[in-house]
Each structure stands twice: as C-alpha cells, then as structure tokens.
Design a protein around this nucleic acid. Structure first.
Lengths: 222, 222
DNA sequence: AATAAATGTGTAAATTCCGTGAAAAAACAA
DNA sequence: TTGTTTTTTCACGGAATTTACACATTTATT
C-alpha cells in the first residue's frame, strides 16, 4: 500500500509520513502539484493525500490534469472550511476531505476506511428500468439485449451515469476520458454523444444537453 | 436521500434536521439506540448521524446490533474528544465522526462527502419556498416544474444567489460572468435581468434593483 | 412640477451553440 | 498487407441566445 503525500509544507508532510509509516503504509512525497503530477504519471500509488492550496499548481488544477487511467482515491486537505461547493461541483473522484488543522489519527482512520471501501467496491451495475450498464463487465443491455457501443461511447456513458444529475462540460469529459494532453476539438464530444444517443434508442433522452455547458445524464424528469 | 438522526437531545436533532432539510435531504429521527435500531430494521436510510452517548442503548452497542445487510454509512457524534473513541468507532465501520460541539456546516459537508463517495449523488441546491436552483444539475424549478432559462440568465441568478443580500454592480457581473475582456454595453445586463425576471414569475421580485448600483437577490423583505 | 438620470421593456439584428452528416485520419484485426 | 471499425475533424443549417438600441417608465433632485 503506497501513499503519495502532496503538500507544500514540509512539516505537515513529515507528520503525515510518520503516521503512515507507523501504520505500515509506504510513502512518497511531493511539494507541489507539478511534482506530484509527474510522480503519478510515472509511478503507481494506491492513495493520495492532497493539499489544495499550493504554489506552482494548486490541487484542483492538478486533479484535472490526471488522465483517467492514473486516477487514484484521494483525500483532500483544505485550509478553509467554506470551499465545499467547489469540491462538490468539480470532481467526484475525491473520496474524502479534511479541514486543517486535523488530527493525524483521524487521517489514518480515513485512509483505512477508503482502503477498505475500494477493495469491496468492485463489480457494479447500474440499472434504470430496462437499461442495464455493467461497469466491470463492460456491457450495456436494453430489454435484456446487448447494445453495441464503441469504447469511447461506453466511457462517456459510464462517466455521465457516475455523475448523474450533474452537468458535465465538454472540457471535463475531454480531460477525464481523453487525458490532459488531448488538444483536439471540443466538438468531438458532440459526435460521440450523437452516436451514443443513436445507440441508446428509447433511452436517448436520458442524455440531456445543457446548453452552454455540456451534457448530463438524468434518471427521470427533474 | 434519507437520513436518520439519532441523538437524545432534541435541540441537536432539530438543528441537524434543519440543515439537512435545507440541503434537500429528507430526515427521520430517533431519540435513542433502541428506537433507532427499530427504525433501521424496518426502513431504509441512506445515511445515519449517530450520537454515541445516549441513555437506554448507546451508539456503539447499537451499531453492533445492526445486522450486516442493514448497515449504512454512519457519521458519529461524540462529546468526548479522545482518540480511543474515534479509532474504536472506525473499526465498527463508521465512515466519519465529529466531536461536539461541531459546526452544522461541517456536518453537512461531510454528509455530502459520504453521499458522494457512496453513490455519487450529491447536488448543491438552493431552495426558497417553491423555488429551487440546482447549481450542479443546472436547472431551476418553481413548484416542481422546470423553468427554462438561458445560460447567461442561469449564471446571473446563480451569482446573485451566491451573493444574496449584497448589491452587485453591473460592472462586477460583467467582469465575473462575461470576462474582463468584454467591451460591450452595461445595459446588456439589464436585458438579461429583464428576461430572468420574466422567467422567474412569482419570484421576479426577489431580484431587486439597487438604484445607482446594480442588482441584488433577497430572500425576504428587508 | 420640471428636469435629468437611471432603469424597464420591446424589437430586431448579430452571434453563438448544437445536431447532424460526410469524409479524413487513426487504430485495429485478420 | 488489406479491410474494417473507431475516432476525429469540419462545415452546414436551424434554432436559441446574446446584444444593441430606441422608447417608455420610474425615481431623485431642484
């Protein structure tokens, strides 16, 4: 179990490190978002403890830049207590957060909780009437019949469903599903949405376009 | 999203209830462990806020009595701040804890965080009687019915609500929502406000013009 | 009451946004 | 390789949105 600690204050990194080592987790550190991003791209960690307020590259920006296949469970440290909105609207990949000052024991406890949760959270399917999306087995069924979609379409649908009810911008889709280094056209997303809708048949209207923003998946009328 | 609040002090239950309702969670209460256990066995909740120190049956005992299939995400409230309680609690599958006295806002934030990681179903919503503005889903409802507004109208309303009670100048709106490089007419704002008011129907008067300054959103008469 | 300044409102032109289809480019399989 | 599927680009056209502006109305001041 390897944990990446991202914080600009050495003191804090040291404290967290100490506690992690005592609990048999191995640790790597980064003092800002840039370094962290680099480490994430070139190594594999099981969990990240991330400070939001950092010089060079802040935590939010960094999270956005992580390509999807490199995303890991993340506990966010935040100095101010009133930024929850941001956390909420932004990225649902954040697993937990703590407001500074926090107790190291509490952090450890949460790390344990997340480690447990992730291990037990594997095969899952999403169901909506006769629509069935199996995330792990990677198939979509409507009325018990397999619907063929391309990988990208599947990724998009999955992402929208996991963020159902929330409007997702094209940029967010691109950076999450294509990767931070994709420099193509926004409208590519539209084309995939078009294909996806075509394939979803009677469920096509569950992908709603939010004009000026992007798309969202809805379960019912809202 | 239904939350069960378990605490022997009615005052505390009421406060938590108030905040939960404001955030679109529905609420049920129990004044001790026995009642709570009963409710859990016969209903289904998405989350529980649980006080540890209670008469009749304390929180820990109660947690142990819950059969595995009925366990739900739990936030523990504890009057004592010593670490032993905290860690012991986590071993019982507790998801988070707060020490009394706690800030209701923090509790809400943590509830959101847990809801978020369990079923990624959080929504930041502003409610005023039958007016409902969902920031993340990007919709406005009045009397349960969707109100169609343009993106700019939505942005403006959102901005005013987030700064409710404060007069916002046209310049401020322009620079925040249009961008610092907008060189158009001040009065464009007025046109959008006009449209927005039209769409807000009975709530049109909550957007007050502050003569000589700009506009503000108010909840009640002032 | 008269005046000036600020705001409300209707209209129409200008602009932006999105769905779509077609075709080029890239990835993949045989 | 060759052929097939997937991904990406791009441009058209309709529709929705944004903006500007003229005129009406309100408000504050004298």
């Amino acid at each position: 179990m390897k944990i990446l600690i991202v914080d600009d204050e050495k003191m804090i990194r040291d404290v967290i490190k100490e506690y992690c080592l005592n609990n048999n987790y191995s640790v790597d550190e980064a003092e800002n978002g840039k370094v962290a991003l680099n480490k994430i791209l070139n190594n594999s960690y099981d969990l990240m403890v991330l400070d939001i307020m950092m010089p060079e590259m802040d935590g939010f920006t960094m999270l956005e830049e992580i390509p999807k296949e490199k995303r890991i469970p993340t506990i966010v440290l935040s100095a101010r207590g009133d930024e929850y909105d941001k956390l909420a609207g932004f990225d649902l990949g954040i697993d937990d957060y703590l407001t500074k000052p926090f107790s190291p024991n509490e952090l450890i406890a949460r790390i344990k909780a997340i480690m447990n949760r992730c291990n037990s959270n594997l095969s899952s399917t999403y169901k909506l009437d006769s629509l069935e999306v199996n995330f792990s087995a990677h198939y979509i069924k409507i009325d018990e019949r397999i619907i063929n979609v391309t990988p990208k379409e599947f990724e998009i649908l999955t992402y929208l469903i996991k963020n159902k009810g929330i409007a997702i911008s094209r940029e967010q889709l691109l950076s999450k599903l294509w990767g931070y280094d994709f420099f193509g056209d926004d409208r590519t997303v539209d084309t995939h949405i078009k294909m996806l809708r075509g394939n979803l048949g009677e469920y096509r209207d569950h992908i709603v376009t939010v004009r000026g923003v992007g798309y969202k998946f809805i379960e019912n009328e809202e």
